[in-house]
Amino acid sequence: MPTHHRPLGRFTTTIAATFTLVLALAACGSADEDTAPPAEPTDASSSVTLSVATSPAAPVSPTTESADLGPLLTVTIDGDEVSPNAEEIDLGTGEKLRVEIDSDRAGELHVHSASEQFIEFVEGTTNGEIVVNTPGTVEVEDHDTSAVVALIEVR
């Protein structure tokens, strides 16, 4: 019985197209992201908790730490102006980073950890938490402007 073989060129093209599709779907700025609900963490390696504050909070330095509450990242967004700019934060694996966002618009922070995390925020003040259980460097960015807000070194 004769055996049919696929030409190597067609196989290579199929693999390359599949790889390109996977990369495109994994990209941070996909077109479907604006209409899709925020992704939930898919495993126990990371989590995000989100709460919305009803009153403005007092100004706080970008990153402060309280013995009882852990480190705090304060993000301020005024239109396209986002601060801080690549704030460096050291965090232990499994340690909670509190995030306070004061913004003049609604939006989303992306936390580029092993399991992608999102913190949606509203106009006004929004509080959330980031927990990363995988060591390494994690980037936090504002989705609308792609401004890098923080670089978290997880040890």
Score class of each variant (00 low, 15 high):
residue 37 P to Q: 02
residue 17 A to F: 03
residue 44 A to E: 05
residue 47 S to Y: 06
residue 13 T to L: 14
residue 25 L to C: 15
residue 26 A to V: 00
residue 35 T to E: 11
residue 17 A to M: 04
residue 45 S to V: 12
residue 23 L to T: 12
residue 24 A to P: 02
residue 30 S to T: 15
residue 17 A to G: 03
residue 18 T to W: 04
residue 30 S to Y: 00
residue 16 A to G: 03
residue 36 A to M: 13
residue 16 A to F: 08
residue 42 T to H: 11
residue 47 S to P: 01
residue 31 A to Y: 05
residue 35 T to H: 04
residue 47 S to R: 13
residue 26 A to R: 09
residue 30 S to I: 00
residue 37 P to W: 07
residue 27 A to Q: 15
residue 36 A to K: 13
residue 34 D to N: 03
residue 42 T to N: 08
residue 39 A to C: 04
residue 38 P to M: 10
residue 25 L to Q: 14
residue 46 S to Q: 11
residue 41 P to A: 09
residue 35 T to G: 09
residue 20 T to K: 01
residue 40 E to N: 01
residue 31 A to Q: 08
residue 14 T to N: 06
residue 23 L to N: 15
residue 16 A to H: 04
residue 40 E to F: 07
residue 20 T to C: 07
residue 46 S to D: 13
residue 45 S to A: 10
residue 24 A to T: 13
residue 25 L to G: 15
residue 44 A to H: 01
residue 44 A to T: 01
residue 19 F to Q: 08
residue 13 T to Y: 14
residue 45 S to H: 08
residue 29 G to V: 02
residue 38 P to D: 09
residue 24 A to G: 15
residue 42 T to S: 11
residue 20 T to P: 00
residue 31 A to D: 11
residue 17 A to L: 14
residue 34 D to P: 00
residue 27 A to R: 06
residue 33 E to Y: 00
residue 16 A to M: 06
residue 16 A to W: 02
residue 21 L to W: 01
residue 26 A to P: 01
residue 15 I to Q: 11
residue 41 P to C: 09
residue 27 A to L: 05
residue 44 A to Y: 01
residue 46 S to R: 04
residue 28 C to Q: 13
residue 14 T to S: 10
residue 30 S to K: 02
residue 38 P to G: 07
residue 42 T to G: 15
residue 15 I to S: 09
residue 39 A to M: 11
residue 42 T to V: 13
residue 18 T to Q: 05
residue 26 A to E: 09
residue 27 A to C: 04
residue 25 L to R: 11
residue 41 P to L: 10
residue 41 P to K: 06
residue 33 E to M: 04
residue 29 G to W: 09
residue 25 L to T: 13
residue 16 A to N: 06
residue 32 D to C: 05
residue 24 A to N: 09
residue 45 S to Q: 14
residue 16 A to D: 08
residue 18 T to N: 08
residue 27 A to S: 15
residue 35 T to P: 00
residue 21 L to I: 06
residue 15 I to Y: 11
residue 15 I to H: 08
residue 47 S to F: 07
residue 40 E to S: 03
residue 15 I to W: 08
residue 22 V to L: 14
residue 26 A to Y: 00
residue 40 E to D: 02
residue 31 A to K: 08
residue 26 A to F: 00
residue 46 S to F: 07
residue 39 A to I: 10
residue 20 T to V: 10
residue 39 A to H: 05
residue 16 A to I: 07
residue 41 P to Y: 04
residue 37 P to R: 01
residue 24 A to Q: 11
residue 24 A to W: 08
residue 39 A to P: 03
residue 29 G to Y: 11
residue 13 T to V: 09
residue 43 D to S: 15
residue 41 P to W: 05
residue 21 L to V: 06
residue 38 P to I: 10
residue 21 L to T: 14
residue 26 A to Q: 10
residue 30 S to W: 00
residue 14 T to K: 09
residue 40 E to G: 00
residue 14 T to F: 07
residue 43 D to M: 00
residue 27 A to T: 07
residue 47 S to C: 06
residue 27 A to K: 02
residue 42 T to R: 07
residue 46 S to V: 04
residue 41 P to N: 06
residue 38 P to R: 10
residue 40 E to M: 05
residue 34 D to T: 04
residue 26 A to C: 05
residue 25 L to Y: 10
residue 44 A to Q: 03
residue 43 D to H: 01
residue 37 P to A: 05
